[in-house]
């Protein structure tokens, strides 16, 4: 492959979706714009549920982007803005579920299953290890050796 086609494939597969919807919101500082970008990708559009506020062009998403824009400009903290959204739309508006009693199962299941898997693996392999090394008596070992020797002698 030429370097040109490699470059083409790279840009083809790793190109990001251009977030066009957040254009038209002018900010004075880089930090504000950054905050707006982050929040609008963290919040879900409730109309097109698999899109963030930044991606969706639903009417409600546009309204919420305006709301978000005004709140960022007026200097509200990220927490204040997220609270504003969840107080009205519930936790569902957050792409990343919060760690609460209700979501405990959701958050802890993967790590719990992982730990169970690792512990099981260690237990099994350790026991098998014991079996293969320690359970063979000298007597048996000699037997095995003589068997191997006799096989070798045949050749």
């Amino acid at each position: 492959m030429t370097s040109r086609s490699i470059a083409f494939l790279f840009f083809f597969f790793f190109s990001c979706q251009v977030i066009a919807e957040i254009a038209g919101f002018p900010f004075e500082t880089e930090a504000e714009e950054q905050r707006f970008r982050e929040l609008s990708t963290e919040l879900r559009c409730l109309v097109c549920q698999n899109q963030s506020l930044a991606d969706s062009n639903a009417g409600l998403a546009q309204d919420l982007r305006v709301e978000l824009y005004e709140q960022v400009l007026s200097g509200n903290s990220n927490k204040q803005i997220i609270d504003f959204m969840t107080n009205r739309y519930g936790d569902f508006i957050l792409y990343k579920p919060r760690f609460t009693l209700k979501t405990l199962f959701l958050w802890l299941t993967p790590i719990t299953l992982f730990i169970i898997g690792v512990v099981t693996l260690i237990c099994f392999s350790r026991k098998q290890g014991e079996y293969s090394t320690e359970q063979v008596s000298d007597e048996e070992l000699n037997k095995i050796r003589s068997l191997i020797d006799s096989e070798d002698n045949k050749k």
Binding site: L46, V47, G59, L60, L64, E67, R88, G90
Partner: peptide
């Protein structure tokens, strides 16, 4: 008219 009260009520559909 502008939907701002709708946001207060958590309207999405």
């Amino acid at each position: 008219k502008d939907g701002s009260v709708g946001i207060e009520w958590g309207t999405y559909g």
